[in-house]
Amino acid sequence: MKIREFIVVEGRDDTTAIQRAVEADTIETNGSAIGEAVIERIKHAQEKRGVIIFTDPDYPGQRIRNIVSERVPGCKHAFLTKEEALPKKGKGIGVEHASREAIRAALKAVQQEMEEEVDSNITAEDLIDAGLIGDAKSKLRREIIGKILKIGYTNGKQLHKRLKMFQISKETFAQAVVKMKEEEQKHC
Rank of each mutant, 00 (worst) to 15 (best):
K89L: 04
G92W: 11
I93D: 12
G94A: 12
V95I: 14
E96A: 10
E96G: 07
E96H: 13
H97A: 14
H97S: 05
E101S: 14
I103L: 05
R104W: 00
R104I: 15
A106F: 10
A106I: 01
K108H: 14
K108Q: 13
K108W: 10
K108C: 11
A109W: 01
A109G: 09
V110F: 09
Q112S: 14
M114T: 10
E117A: 11
D119H: 05
D119S: 14
N121K: 15
N121R: 11
I122G: 03
I122S: 05
A124M: 06
E125N: 09
E125M: 08
D126L: 01
I128N: 03
D129H: 08
D129F: 00
A130N: 05
G131D: 02
G131E: 02
I133V: 15
G134E: 03
A136G: 06
A136F: 07
S138H: 08
S138I: 03
S138N: 11
K139I: 04
L140S: 12
R142C: 08
I144E: 08
I145A: 04
G146D: 11
K147R: 13
K147E: 15
I151P: 00
G152T: 10
G152Y: 07
G152M: 08
N155H: 03
G156D: 01
G156H: 04
K157S: 11
Q158L: 13
L159S: 12
L159D: 07
K161Q: 06
K164T: 00
I168Y: 01
I168W: 01
